[in-house]
């Protein structure tokens, strides 16, 4: 179980490099997917809520440090998102949760919540409207992030019920 905690750390560095150096190239109207969140949700669904929260907290902290953003913003949003994703964790339904299109749905919900939380935390401008935060900085990045869950279910050897 302890070794499992190192798995996200292994994936984190290449994904963080992609997130900060390559993903901006595929942004649509400043809307980007969050690859690290895809990994976090996947591992939360595999290993549970507490695992997800601790990982979200640590990876969020590192991402805050290396992205030049506000320290604590990704920490908080990843922790809460992993907590919510943890409710979908079910030991008996690992295949359905991580290798079927249900994973994309979970990713969309969590991606939306994460983007909305991150923007709300890091925004200090009162002119930014709630609906902008919810739709353009919540739902749209959530959809974009969910799209990046499709390769995971396609190439996942544990393909379950679709």
């Amino acid at each position: 179980m302890v070794l499992n905690y190192f798995k996200p750390a292994l994936f984190f560095i290449p994904l963080a490099v992609l997130q900060l150096a390559v993903v901006p190239l595929i942004s649509i109207n400043n809307i980007t997917p969050n690859l690290i969140l895809v990994m976090l949700i996947f591992f939360t669904l595999m290993y549970g809520q507490i695992f997800g929260m601790i990982n979200g907290f640590i990876l969020g902290f590192i991402l805050d440090l290396i992205s030049g953003g506000l320290i604590g913003a990704f920490m908080l949003s990843f922790t809460i998102t992993a907590f919510i994703a943890g409710y979908f964790y079910n030991e008996n339904k690992l295949d359905i949760n991580t290798a079927s299109y249900f994973f994309v749905v979970i990713l969309f919900i969590c991606g939306t919540i994460n983007s909305f939380l991150y923007s709300s935390i890091s925004n200090s401008n009162a002119d930014v409207g709630f609906f902008l935060l919810l739709i353009e900085d919540g739902i749209l990045p959530g959809i974009y992030t969910a799209l990046f869950g499709i390769p995971i279910i396609i190439f996942n050897p544990k393909k379950g019920i679709e």
Partner: peptide, 9 residues
Amino acid sequence: VSKLVNKIQ
């Protein structure tokens, strides 16, 4: 070298 792209920050 890298960009943090979102609507707010």
